[in-house]
């Protein structure tokens, strides 16, 4: 069932991130920024704070990119980094404002215990992954299969043709179609394709 989804955790992608490849980071950013921002906004109840926190999260991932291993689950990693950054943000706020009213204090307690709730976290992390996969899965089935084999698994066009029992020309067409489809429907994934094409 290798055709089900494009694997964001593909080794080639993570190796590029480790190398500090700009286009790989742009892809990661464009895939995840709005979704992590949405989660942080939920955790912090503030548009501005969430913006800052997620920006810093990406900077941290960039700074410590060598911590990424080929076995790293990117989705889990990004989610955990964001959640921890939100926790840090709340703690920091607490130090900054020693004199806050009772209501503020209660609100913070509620935010804090929500962040610490493992079941709520899992639910969000799972949904985040589902959203990402859903986006990538918009590609037509055959197209996707060829595309994944070629660009994520590194198979040559003639190898795919043999494997799937189709002509090399059909493989070429499928890949061209995949690219066109993504360009039409998934503007933000363009950079992903560039990276993969360069490989």
């Amino acid at each position: 069932m290798e055709s089900r989804s494009i694997n964001i955790n593909a080794n080639s992608f993570i190796l590029l991130l480790r190398k500090g490849d700009n286009r790989a980071f742009e892809t990661l950013f464009r895939l995840y920024y709005d979704k992590l921002f949405h989660i942080a906004k939920g955790y912090l109840d503030s548009h501005e704070d969430a913006e800052g926190v997620v920006q810093n999260t990406f900077l941290k991932i960039w700074e410590y990119r060598l911590k990424l291993e080929v076995s790293t689950n990117l989705n889990g990693y990004l989610y955990a980094m964001t959640k921890n950054a939100c926790l840090d943000h709340l703690k920091h706020q607490k130090i900054k404002n020693n004199y806050i009213d009772l209501r503020q204090h209660k609100k913070r307690m509620i935010q804090y215990q929500f962040l610490k709730d493992e079941a709520a976290s899992l639910l969000l992390k799972n949904e985040l992954e589902r959203k990402i996969i859903q986006g990538l899965d918009l590609l037509p089935e055959k197209c996707k299969k060829v595309f994944v084999k070629s660009r994520m698994e590194g198979l040559k066009h003639h190898e795919i043709a043999k494997l799937m029992g189709i002509s090399k020309r059909t493989v070429d067409n499928h890949i061209a179609n995949a690219l066109r489809h993504m360009r039409l429907h998934l503007r933000e994934f363009l950079s992903l394709i560039f990276i993969i094409l360069l490989k």
């Binding site: 742009e26 950013f29 464009r30 920024y33 709005d34 979704k35 921002f37 949405h38 989660i39 906004k41 939920g42 913006e51 920006q55 509620i110 215990q113 929500f114 709730d117 079941a119 709520a120 976290s121 639910l123 969000l124 949904e127 985040l128 959203k131 933000e188």
Partner: peptide, 26 residues
């Protein structure tokens, strides 16, 4: 409350996606 809140956040991803200017943020 936590479960309701997480379910609410999980169900509203698209609302945020529509308002964010990813290019500028990038």
């Amino acid at each position: 409350y936590n479960l309701l809140k997480s379910q609410f956040i999980a169900a509203t991803f698209n609302q945020t996606t529509d308002t964010v200017e990813v290019g500028r943020e990038y």
